[in-house]
């Protein structure tokens, strides 16, 4: 076991993947000599050489587009996009090609690859470094979207993503890259993609979250328990696509109330998909509308307004209390 941070677990997973399979290569901006702007690939070029850990020109569409060609021609590319909000020039490659090549060729070609990208706010970063646009990728059939919230999951999910026969977008919550450590097994293991994790069991209300919102959900749950004696279940979805609908159903069937939590704007956010899933599978158990605790419907602000934008424990607790206090017919 090693006591490590989330980013340390990612570096560990990358090293194992490079050791295990010579088809694995890492490519991206500043990933080589510099070890990545967050140091996720630190030391890897030194260890594995420039043909395994490759600095590319500053060109996101080319990085993802070339990864398709690499994948169909026998390599396993792990592309790093420096910040997820810089992936927009590559969105066309992801949507038009990465996600579709298996279907378009009826299985003759496929593009198994991993695209890693730090995302989300909370670190006082400059403008356009902090978006949480995971929903625009989760909406695309053919892609898988995975977000770890702990060092253990980061390593196991990343190794699962690298082994996956389909393209996996691996979004890393940079706010919690180094915020805590935990014991992580040495060597190879995987965490299955598409399975949610019950972080904390409870009986009155469920909070659904992922990434850096998982610790916020726990803090909010704690506040609701201390101030109001509410027993809150917290579920880390871990994968937005595929979505563990069974876990959502099971938890809401038990608690009868739910809060969905994300950093991204509320309108057409991924929370709406969770609400719809609850409607599909657990409506009869619901005792209150599903509350949404989210970013506002504004662009992600410059950091002077970041704290006002970002959901925090108090807003999560408020959502939980609203769900608890809801009276049927009150909104008529």
């Amino acid at each position: 076991m090693a006591n490590t941070t989330l980013i340390g677990a990612i570096t560990d997973a990358l090293r194992i993947a490079l050791q295990q399979d010579e088809r694995v290569i890492i490519l991206g901006e500043d990933v080589g000599k510099n070890g990545g702007v967050f140091r996720a690939t630190e030391g890897l070029q030194e260890e594995f050489g420039e043909t395994r850990v490759m600095d590319t020109p500053l060109a996101e569409a080319a990085i993802i587009g070339a990864s398709i060609g690499l994948a169909v021609n026998g390599m396993i590319p792990i592309a790093e996009i420096q910040f997820l909000a810089f992936a927009y020039p590559a969105y066309e490659q992801l949507v038009s090609h990465v996600s579709r090549i298996r279907m378009r060729s009826q299985g003759r070609f496929s593009a198994p690859m991993v695209v890693r990208a730090p995302y989300g706010g909370g670190i006082r970063a400059p403008e356009l470094h902090c978006d949480s646009p995971e929903v625009i990728f989760a909406h695309v059939p053919g892609l898988k979207v995975v977000v770890p919230a702990t060092p253990y999951d980061a390593k196991g999910l990343l190794l699962a993503a690298i082994a996956d026969p389909d393209p996996v977008l691996f979004f890393e919550p940079m706010r919690i890259y180094r915020s805590f450590r935990e014991e992580v097994p040495e060597g190879y293991y995987t965490v299955p993609i598409g399975k949610a994790r019950v972080v904390q069991e409870g009986t009155d209300c469920t909070v659904f979250a992922w990434g850096a919102m998982v610790p916020v959900a726990l803090q909010g749950a704690d506040l609701a328990r201390k101030q109001h004696g509410i027993s809150v279940e917290v579920i880390d979805l871990r994968s937005l696509s595929p979505l563990d609908r069974d876990a959502i159903r099971d938890s809401v069937m038990k608690t009868g109330r739910a809060v969905v939590l994300h950093e991204a704007p509320r309108h057409a956010g991924f929370g709406a998909e969770i609400v719809a899933t609850i409607n599909d599978l657990a409506l009869d158990a619901l005792m209150a509308p599903v509350m949404r605790v989210t970013g506002y419907d504004t662009p992600y602000p410059l950091f002077a307004l970041e704290d006002a934008y970002m959901p925090d424990a108090a807003r999560v607790a408020e959502g939980i209390v609203q769900a608890m206090n809801y009276e049927i017919g009150a909104r008529l």
Partner: peptide
């Protein structure tokens, strides 16, 4: 066009 670059790199 970028796909070809990737295939050539492979």
């Amino acid at each position: 066009i970028p796909h070809a670059a990737g295939a050539a790199l492979a």
